[in-house]
């Protein structure tokens, strides 16, 4: 009997993307540039985070016509962003047959309280998280892949680092704690107890965890890999820079060879201007995307 949409095929696709770079694209041309640079997948969205931040307004899922053009343009998997809690945007993206849905804080949330019930879908979901509690709640809701949130559209890696370090620290705690302390950790972190049991069984998060939000240079990508993430999401970092083709390739190379500083050094040469960065202190609290 053929079974579609099992959790194993959902989380399995994310396993296949490990060690790779997923790039935000708004057009088919950008998707082709990403594929040629060695991206393992592309993320379709209406505007890149830096533009959403600059222009303001409500950020929604991309125009289905655009998504279709991107689906037709490349053979690598195509992901697309839906607003947090907007299960109909997710239904539309599933009908378009995108390969993964990112229920993303980069877009304006559609539900102030609830995330999408991701078990109700055949298409898999990736969700952002700042800490273990968020990651485990999203997994319990059916997410088959996690990415740390960072602070999108800033070109500033500091929040991505903060979230990855915190997550790793909390996972170490879960793995080293005596069994009797697990329920209390569940209470303190807000992580469902069953997911913590799964972490102890696997010795790590039960799904793949990529880094995202503020990665703009090859060194940023290599640092996140050395901190232990499974792969990289680059949002505005590529197509808001001076030479997207060259930078895309350089970030991919640095992600693959993250432990080899000679390679990271050589691909970092002469990349032209990086995207303009924003200091996190300059962002008004209500414009922080990570708290969504």
């Amino acid at each position: 009997m053929v079974e579609k949409g099992t959790y194993r095929v959902k989380s399995g696709l994310a396993e296949m993307l490990k060690g790779g770079v997923i790039m935000d694209v708004t057009t088919a041309d950008q998707a082709i540039i990403a594929e040629r640079a060695g991206a393992v997948a592309v993320m379709s969205l209406e505007r890149v985070p830096a533009d959403i931040r600059a222009q303001g307004g409500v950020a929604r899922m991309a125009d289905p016509a655009r998504v279709k053009e991107i689906l037709a343009a490349v053979s690598i998997p195509v992901m697309a962003k839906a607003r947090i809690g907007h299960f109909v945007e997710a239904q539309v993206l599933e009908a378009l047959e995108v390969d993964y849905i990112d229920e993303s804080e980069v877009l304006t949330p559609a539900d102030p309280q609830y995330h999408i019930d991701k078990w109700a879908f055949t298409v898999p979901f990736v969700c952002g998280a700042r800490n273990l509690g968020e990651a485990c709640r999203r997994i319990a809701e059916g997410a088959a892949m996690i990415r740390t949130k960072g602070e999108p559209g800033t070109g500033n890696v500091v929040e991505a680092v903060r979230h990855m370090r915190l997550m790793n620290k909390q996972i170490r705690l879960v793995l080293s704690a005596p069994p009797g302390e697990l329920m209390s950790i569940a209470k303190e972190t807000g992580a469902p107890y069953q997911v913590l049991l799964a972490i102890r069984e696997k010795g790590r998060l039960p799904v793949v965890n990529f880094a995202a939000g503020g990665i703009a240079t090859p060194s940023d990508a290599a640092m996140m890999m050395q901190l232990g993430c499974d792969g990289i999401f680059v949002g505005s970092g590529v197509f808001k820079s001076g030479d997207p083709e060259k930078r895309a390739w350089a970030i991919v190379e640095a992600t693959t060879h993250y432990k080899e500083s000679e390679i990271v050094a050589s691909v970092s040469e002469g990349l032209g201007e990086a995207m303009v960065g924003i200091s996190i202190d300059e962002i008004p609290p209500h414009e922080m995307m990570q708290v969504r």
């Binding site: 579609k4 099992t6 194993r8 399995g12 047959e97 298409v123």
Partner: peptide, 24 residues
């Protein structure tokens, strides 16, 4: 595409007649 990814029991010559194939 991914929505059509599936699992099915396979019969594999010389290996097994009940191997769970995960197709992504």
């Amino acid at each position: 595409r991914q929505v059509d990814s599936f699992e099915v029991m396979l019969c594999i010559k010389g290996v097994a007649d009940d191997f769970q194939g995960v197709f992504i």
